[in-house]
């Protein structure tokens, strides 16, 4: 274990808060993205899609 002196608790607490907040932020962004993608997938499975994508499917050469 690294010896951080008499104020080790403050140092570890600062790094722990950092890790928790950043992990939470990353987790929230990944979860949010996955949730929206799943909802978009459901809509597309029901045949609802963007006009540009629908148009490109109708005219593959364009």
């Amino acid at each position: 274990m690294i010896d951080l002196g008499p104020h080790a608790a403050f140092i570890w607490a600062a790094y722990a808060i950092y890790a928790v907040v950043l992990a939470g932020l990353v987790g929230w962004l990944v979860w949010d993205g996955a949730r929206i993608k799943a909802q978009l997938g459901e809509l597309e499975a029901r045949g609802v899609s963007r006009r540009s994508r629908a148009a490109s499917k109708e005219t593959p050469s364009s």
């Binding site: 962004l29 990944v30 949010d32 993205g33 929206i36 993608k37 909802q39 978009l40 809509l43 609802v48 899609s49 963007r50």
Partner: peptide, 16 residues
């Protein structure tokens, strides 16, 4: 990542 999520959210909203 946040911007990508927001763009997808707006697409989802307009499709809905």
């Amino acid at each position: 990542k946040g911007m990508r999520n927001e763009i997808l959210r707006r697409r989802l909203r307009s499709l809905t």
